[in-house]
Amino acid sequence: MIKVLIDGKAGAVKEGATVLEAARMLNIPIPTLCHHPKLSPFGGCRLCIVEIKGIPRPVTSCTTPVTEGMEVTTSTPALEDLRKTVLELILSDHPNDCMLCERAGDCTLQELAYFYDVKENRFAGERRIYEKKDGNPFIERDMEKCILCGRCVNACEEIQGVSAIDFAYRGFKSKICPPYEHDLNCEFCGQCVAVCPTGALTGKGWSHKGRQKDIKEVDTTCPYCGTGCGITLHVKRNEVVRVTSKESGWNEGWLCAKGRFGYSFIGSPERLRTPLIKEAAGGFREASWDEALEYAAKRLKEIKEKHGPDSIGGLSSARCTNEDNYLFQKFMRAAIGTNNVDHCARL
């Protein structure tokens, strides 16, 4: 363990820990925008600068490993002044239309602007103006709101292993985009959306569906596959308007395209609400669960008697849990008496 003194508080952290991690462990707040605990440090937003005894200039706490006996100061008038300059610079190149932004109330940038009381901007000047033209089905990319924190780029590369987006151009014109500025054409896992600290990346399906304060969050498990990622349904007036996932869950907040964006079936009018029985004359009629189950049991027995158990096959679903699938094969083998059982994920 390495000993460190931050703002007069002593602590011990394991080798390789950064100053920021040590500070957070000691409950000392340091503002950040580009830092994400699950991604490699970037050091671009410069908000987490601190003073370290023996180093002549401020350094970013997110990139600096703690060394034995290090003495750190996280807040001085000079540091806060630099932070305010940096924030003002970011906001001087930002649409600042929080009133209409999907992320209002749930945006790190907005929070910091409030905290640092950035009202007037000494650096007002040209702003990057981009046309919103990405025709992909899931992700809204409003690059005028992008602060180039690089989180999306890192998440895409380090978590998803896809590298569908990266920095392009230089200087003030720097921009995050897919190669050749084509429309995004990737796995649409949405990890980038999950890590974006601003309103630059949001779900297309989320737009104008409600502010976070009016939303009830319901923690549950994703029903799509047996992996069982933890998800949080954002419910407004009994409608699921967005799905997110918490970093504290075992899947660390990462989801796949289906889990993150494929929730519209929940409220779909086409979704079955009762069992249906196919009539001899053709067409379906609604039935109760008891009736449907009895009917199925009766027919299975009849077929087994007449044609033998191997005339029946069972196919189960990846969307069921392991336990369900176990029971299903047991049912096929023990109750029906056949090995004709398979699973959609094996196809």
Binding site: F42, G43, G44, C45, R46, T85, V86, L89, I90, S92, D93, F123, G125, E126, I147, L148, G150, F167, Y169, R170, G171, F172, K173, S174
Partner: peptide
């Protein structure tokens, strides 16, 4: 300004403001 890599705020936006 034109050669800034764009990674950090003071250089990317700050030099632009100086230039303005």
């Amino acid at each position: 300004q034109a050669e800034s890599c764009g990674k950090c705020v003071p250089c990317r936006i700050g030099t632009k403001r100086l230039l303005e």
